[in-house]
Design a protein around this nucleic acid. Structure first.
Lengths: 337, 337
DNA sequence: CTGAAAGCGCTAACAG
DNA sequence: CTGTTAGCGCTTTCAG
């Protein structure tokens, strides 16, 4: 029942247990025949090194934590979370790490305190911070740094904090969308984007939009929402009955775009004939809206893997330079534009 | 920078480090004044016991794992996962445990192998198994038992496996729904439910439906779907153009119900005048469909907390009797019925 | 009531 | 190439 230890393996293979350790970490050269015998014993005894002992001895934890910060119920619907979380976990496993998860509520000091406690207890050695909703990362990440907690920002640009980040080239994506709409003859392109969201990915999209329409000498017009399906629906009603009625609605995410498409249908507005609608994310449901959604594919899974590798890099070499990685995005043209 | 240890605290308080340990675990009586001094030192040095050392010494891990088994991409949209996961984590924290997550793919031996490896390495001491999609729990849970991995089933009844489970009283919920529809004068009540899903929660709902309509001397009629929004939409088209056109559509979850409501709107069918539609779950979006959704509220968060406490109970006393807990559900009447 | 000593399973020096 | 020794931070005997 109880698990095999190094000593059990050593006894079984007829060597000292340090030799087994050497084989495991291929630390010093072991005679091939001995090595083979040890490996056999490891297999036969179904031996797996005890992580607690390893962590204690090496003063190094092989557990990481995925932090959803500023998490709140409304965002639960977003496919985003599960998608990136499972990508983190898979990538961590392949590097011999495991992954915990924390949901930090920006308004709850207790959630933050129990998180800090877990870190101080050595439950994880580094974090990937995923900012959700209307929260500014800066303060929090600053605090993590003060704790000595290595971290990598996911899907956010670190303004000037000395931390690494992995995100996507949202500017490129917005330009591709605007160019696409313009190439289809649209010239009243309205942006639908959250107003109070300080996450840099929103700001980036916002600024890129302004630049992109200006580059075509087109006016910009912006309506504000809040990332949700319902918000997209309401925004469409609002924007359709205005003097600024657009011929293209560029939604900052897929969920708002799906809401807008539904609203158009309810009003009997034909998409894309009367108005083009585009999203941003390329979640699975973008293929199932009616009409199907033109959007920007963001490689969240690849971003997640990259973020994890970046964190591992920082962990192994604490003086590694901080770097921000931008992964390319791509335009996916479907029926809605 | 480096964290304080027991010895640091002892030195600071002027006692031996074993005394500090005694204070922490209030193991043997320590003189109140000494105790107070130690507690002061702990606070001043911001001491937190090293979990790796504790785990090594006590041969007991304070990390649990939440296993999403049979997970696949289509289910990603379900709010369910984040909901229960964050409930697990919060409850675990309050008991001094932390939580990892694993996504096990029934079709991927590798995912299972790396999971087993993590367990053998002592990365977690028990699991809560959440079955997703078309998977039979039995075989897997049997395997966990053989590994010596304590586990509790979530939202599934263990047919006869010797494991504890926490689920909800789905039979009660279905009866309440059927009674409700009947009380509104409906007498052609059709059930929409996945066919190939062997998860017991689907079977339970199915059987309860049959019994419930029979108790009113009504005929039963069932259409098959697959839990998704799109599936609900398609099922509605199918069921509406049949000789069995129902006056109430009882959907086995909220997502299918939301899809059915959308389909009704597309066809110009008035809900609830021409047909009542009900869901099952009471996810947040049930309030936002148009018309809003009559459904059964399932207390997933409370179920999650209960499951975690059950697991902890099994961990502390490995001879604790296995038990299945059924939490009550409640009918939530909104506009769609 | 408090201190000394042993050891959980492992790695990393050091000798042989 | 292999074995000896020490010690990571903690709990738990056992003596004082």
């Amino acid at each position: 029942m109880s698990r095999a230890t190094l000593k059990d393996v050593a006894a079984h293979a007829g060597v000292s247990y340090q030799t087994v350790s050497n084989v495991l970490n291929d630390h010093r050269s072991v005679r091939p025949t001995t090595r083979e015998r040890v490996i056999q014993s490891i297999r036969m005894l179904d031996y797996h090194p005890n992580q607690a002992a390893k962590a204690l001895r090496e003063a190094r934890v092989t557990t990481l934590c995925c932090v959803f910060y500023g998490y709140h119920a409304e965002d639960i619907h977003d496919p985003y979370h599960n998608l990136i979380q499972s990508a983190f976990i898979l990538e961590a496993y392949t590097h011999g790490y495991s992954m915990t998860t924390a949901f930090l509520d920006s308004k709850s000091p207790e959630s933050l305190e129990s998180f800090r406690q877990a870190f101080m207890q050595g439950r994880f050695g580094g974090v990937i911070v995923v900012i959700t909703g209307d929260t500014l990362a800066a303060k929090q990440v600053q605090m993590f740094k003060e704790w000595g907690l290595p971290c990598v920002l996911f899907d956010n640009e670190p303004s000037s904090l000395g931390v690494s980040a992995v995100t996507a080239d949202y500017t490129q994506g917005i330009f591709e969308l605007v160019n696409h709409h313009v190439s289809k003859g649209r010239n009243r392109i309205t942006l639908l984007i959250p107003k109070d969201d300080l996450a840099s990915s929103a700001i980036t999209r916002h600024n890129a939009y302004i630049k992109a329409v200006q580059s075509h000498n087109l006016p910009h017009h912006i309506v504000f929402g809040e990332w949700s399906f319902e918000s997209g629906e309401n925004a469409f009603y609002e924007v359709w009955n205005t003097e600024h009625r657009p011929d293209a609605l560029l939604c900052a995410n897929d969920r708002m775009a799906a809401g807008a498409i539904l609203a158009a249908r309810k009003l009997g507005v034909r998409v894309p004939e009367e108005i083009a609608i585009s999203g941003f994310d390329d979640f699975e449901f973008a293929r199932y809206t009616a009409p199907s959604l033109t959007t920007i594919r963001v490689p969240y899974d690849e971003m997640a893997r990259q973020a994890l590798r970046t964190l591992l890099g920082n962990l192994e070499d604490s003086h590694a330079p901080t770097q921000t990685t931008f992964l390319p995005v791509s335009l996916v043209v479907r029926e809605s534009s």
